[in-house]
């Protein structure tokens, strides 16, 4: 790793100013991806701007028909929050399934979604629940936030401050984890509310996507058997040492059924 200038701003405005003053700066949230990336030499920022000292962008709050989670809230806090466990248990369970205990103690919601790793868990929850990403300058619907593999709608000097998750009638997340990393080989988040059913898939493609054929089938009959015969195309799905596109396509179907069953 190369040396860099370390900044620990006290406010979002100061962090943005640090970034604007740098030719090649990076924000540091939990660091569970950023630091390994720097250790491998895949990133070598001149300035590292640590967001840990900023008040008001961590924590869980109850809103009107929604739960708002600060960007710097760790996965372990989301997993153990009594409010989330009671009102949106699928999200608490998702957070508990990320990495391991030590990673969950450091990794954050804002860091995870801003990185948009194709195998990250949170993107599926945001898209299926129709969450809104709040930044220092605007509000972005989750579906517009995740753009491509490791790419989001964020500007270079834009910081996620919180995510608002609408409460739904039923929701569940089913994941086939890579046994070593616990990243999702395929993860499917199913959410049902008055407007219909939303099915979001992570781990399978270059970025999170909605499985519209599954949504239509579940709108008519919210049961796992409604997904019988609803094939998922392997076109454009990821291929790596862990799984072929065809295997991932198969897993999408299996995980979707498990998620529907888990909705009860």
């Amino acid at each position: 790793m190369q040396n860099f200038d370390y900044h620990k701003p006290n406010s979002v405005d100061e962090a943005v100013a640090n970034m604007q003053a740098s030719d090649d700066g990076k924000f540091l949230a939990g660091g569970m991806t950023m630091l390994p990336t720097m250790k491998q030499g895949l990133a070598a920022p001149e300035d590292l701007i640590d967001l840990h000292g900023i008040d008001g962008i961590a924590g869980v709050a109850e809103g009107a028909d929604a739960i708002e989670i600060g960007a710097m809230t760790s996965h372990s806090v989301v997993a153990s929050s009594a409010l989330i466990q009671s009102d949106l248990p699928a999200l608490a369970a998702l957070a508990e399934s990320i990495g391991d205990r030590q990673v969950r103690a450091r990794g954050t919601l804002g860091g995870s979604i801003s990185n948009n790793d194709p195998a990250a868990d949170y993107p599926a929850a945001l898209v299926a629940l129709g969450a809104t990403v709040k930044t220092n300058t605007r509000e972005i619907p989750a579906e517009d936030f995740f753009v491509e593999m490791f790419e989001t709608a964020l500007a270079e000097d834009e910081i996620v401050t919180s995510v608002s998750f609408p409460l739904v009638e039923k929701a569940a997340y089913a994941k086939f984890p890579n046994p070593a990393s616990r990243y999702a080989m395929v993860g499917v988040f199913v959410a049902k509310n008055a407007d219909g059913v939303r099915v979001a898939v992570t781990g399978a493609g270059p970025s999170v996507f909605r499985a519209s054929a599954m949504e239509s089938a579940l709108d008519g009959d919210f049961s796992s058997s409604a997904l019988d015969g609803v094939a998922v195309s392997a076109d454009d799905l990821n291929s790596d040492i862990h799984a072929s596109p065809e295997y991932r396509a198969h897993l999408v179907g299996v995980m979707a059924k498990r998620a529907v069953d888990a909705c009860g």
Binding site: Y6, P36, D50, Q102, R106
Partner: peptide, 12 residues
């Protein structure tokens, strides 16, 4: 809290 010290900076 238990953390992995290979994935934190000393300055943190």
């Amino acid at each position: 809290k238990s953390v992995k010290s290979c994935t934190m900076l000393a300055v943190q």
